[in-house]
Computed example of a mutant assay.
Amino acid sequence: MGLKKSFRYRINFFLELIGFIFPLTIQYFLWTGVFSASGNNITFGYTLNQMLAYSIFACLTSRIISSNFVYEINSDIKEGGLAKYLIRPVNYFSYNLFSYLGEKIGTIITSLIMILVLCVIFYTISSNIISISHIILYLITLILSLILNFYIYYCISELGFWMKDASGAIFITTLVGNIVSGGIFPLDIFGDMVKSILTFLPFSYTSYFPVSILCNTMEYSQILKGICMQILWIFIFVIITPRLWGVGIKKYVAIGG
């Protein structure tokens, strides 16, 4: 279902693909300006090449794990569309999960091709930025990031049970989540204290963690710890999600549909 939907709106898909170049252009001029003004080769613990690599890979990773389905769930709850799923032998969670993964196939393929091409380019610039082992580890953690991000935003979409219209809260949460996840720039720029707080949250393990692996800015001990944290947060959400849904569904009243 999700795969069909992805190809049905292939014009939007290609426009989205082209559209991500704009924020990357801004990032390029921003960081070249910052490094030029500072006069240092290393800023926030990154060289200019590492920072540009992070910005590009973070943008592509954010595209892969983005969760637009939250607005559809909010609409189902608000407008009564959820009722048709409740009276059918369909698991609403599983339906959304597989639709989400199906919609992501095209984005995943194109983004990974671009990432691999860029890895080759950055490797020719400096072998210290990219390595084969880190690409493999990135792909492993990306799968966990995809699952974790789905759970995070599925829980956020459940706010619709307690709000008349949760679209505003979803928008703000998604915007803030993109920042604190490291989807725009590395968490290192916030300083050690704020970074240590953010790394306790699940958001940092969706973008910052896998992208930092790809950019070769993490030790293997940190990578192992990060993978354990990804699995732990997924386990926590596996427990929380159905319980939160169970409480919310008791408040649900179908109007329209």
Rank of each mutant, 00 (worst) to 15 (best):
K84W: 08
K225T: 14
T174N: 12
K251M: 12
S66Y: 12
S131I: 11
S131Q: 09
G177R: 06
I56W: 14
I231D: 03
S207W: 06
N12H: 12
N128A: 14
L30S: 09
K250T: 14
S167Q: 10
V211R: 05
S6H: 14
S181Q: 11
V247N: 13
M163N: 09
S66Q: 13
T141Y: 06
F35S: 03
I236W: 06
L146G: 01
I170A: 07
F161A: 01
Q230F: 04
L86R: 03
I129K: 03
I152M: 09
Y46K: 06
F57I: 05
V247H: 10
L60F: 14
F203I: 05
F69Y: 15
I65D: 00
F7K: 05
C119I: 04
G45D: 01
G2R: 03
P23V: 08
I189L: 08
S67V: 12
I236L: 14
K195D: 01
F200K: 12
F209Q: 05
I234T: 02
F22L: 15
L30N: 05
I21R: 04
F13M: 09
L139E: 04
L175T: 11
Y46S: 04
G33I: 03
R8C: 06
I130G: 06
L139K: 06
W233K: 02
Y151T: 00
V194D: 04
D76H: 13
V90Q: 09
L224T: 11
L3S: 08
L24C: 11
Y100Q: 08
F150W: 02
Q222G: 11
I223P: 04
F98L: 13
V117D: 03
S157N: 05
N41Y: 09
S75E: 14
K250G: 08
T199F: 11
I143N: 08
I11N: 10
N74M: 09
N216V: 00
Y28G: 06
G177I: 07
S55K: 02
I125K: 11
I231P: 00
K250A: 11
Y123K: 09
L201Q: 06
F14V: 10
G248H: 00
Y151R: 00
L214H: 05
I56H: 01
R88Y: 12
T124H: 10
I170M: 10
A169R: 02
F122S: 00
R88N: 13
S66E: 14
